[in-house]
Design a protein around this nucleic acid. Structure first.
Length: 226
DNA sequence: TCTGCCAAGAGCAGATAGCG
DNA sequence: CGCTATCTGCTCTTGGCAGA
């Protein structure tokens, strides 16, 4: 194995196991406690290791959170697949629904670390900003590509498609980040309602020419008072 | 011999108590 | 209320031991 620990020792089976235990313990801790309250000692304790062992594999808390963020970022194949399948293989509504489903499932799998990642990115932590951008950009571009492909015969500029994609992606991610909060208030929209709305909006953006013309006229129409 | 871990301990920061 | 002393817990380094 090429990887080495902080003492320069190459990491063998047991070392990899300890590193894994530390990461798993961190994931469990951030699911139940605010990230800023978590200490290296607490992580090591939870992993049933001495606190010094933590520093054998990670420089500090940020480094282990970053490792978990990277790991989560690498688990997006389903989401990419949902957007990457052939256009003709299914109607836009089905493709949009598949993407929303995959994206929500991805957040369900990694909610704790993704929430921490976004919090640190919003706090202008460069490494977390980079990793959030690296995972979001391919999806934002893929959504923009689909919009462009659906509007071949009128002038949706790449820049506009990209901007719309940024907005819809941000909204979808924000909603995916807070299903627990929504569950606390039964009078609010259900998770299914939100997901359906997301899929509907994406469908509108992904639907080719005729509907897109309707969309343009809809967007151009004067707004009625609520 | 190498890997992996931990005990010991220094240094530091935040919390708390005591005092004027 | 503000200052100081003390306590407590955390970070991090060094050195050494056990096991494969």
């Amino acid at each position: 194995m090429d990887e080495v620990n902080k003492q320069g020792q190459s990491i063998g089976r047991k070392g990899a196991e300890s590193r894994r235990r530390l990461m798993d313990a961190t994931r469990e801790l951030i699911a139940v406690e605010p990230a800023h309250k978590i200490t290296a000692s607490a992580i090591a304790r939870a992993a049933k290791l001495a606190s010094q062992t933590f520093y054998l594999y990670f420089k500090d808390i940020d480094e282990i959170l970053l490792a978990l963020s990277q790991e989560a970022g690498a688990d997006m194949q389903d989401v990419h697949d949902a957007l990457g399948s052939a256009w003709e293989s299914a109607p836009p509504a089905e493709q949009a629904g598949r993407f929303i489903e995959a994206f929500t499932a991805y957040w369900d799998r990694h909610r704790a670390i993704l929430t921490v990642r976004n919090y640190l990115a919003d706090s202008a932590h460069p490494a977390f900003l980079t990793i959030r951008q690296d995972t979001a950009m391919p999806l934002i571009n893929a959504i923009a590509d689909r919009m462009m492909a659906a509007h071949p015969d009128h002038d949706l500029e790449r820049k506009s498609a990209f901007a719309r994609s940024v907005i819809i992606y941000s909204a979808i991610e924000r909603m995916a980040a807070r299903p627990a909060t929504m569950r606390h208030n039964p009078s609010m929209l259900s998770l299914a309602d939100i997901q359906q709305a997301e899929a509907d909006i994406l469908t509108l953006l992904f639907t080719p020419t005729r509907a897109s013309i309707d969309e343009q006229s809809l967007l151009a129409a004067p707004r009625k008072q609520a």
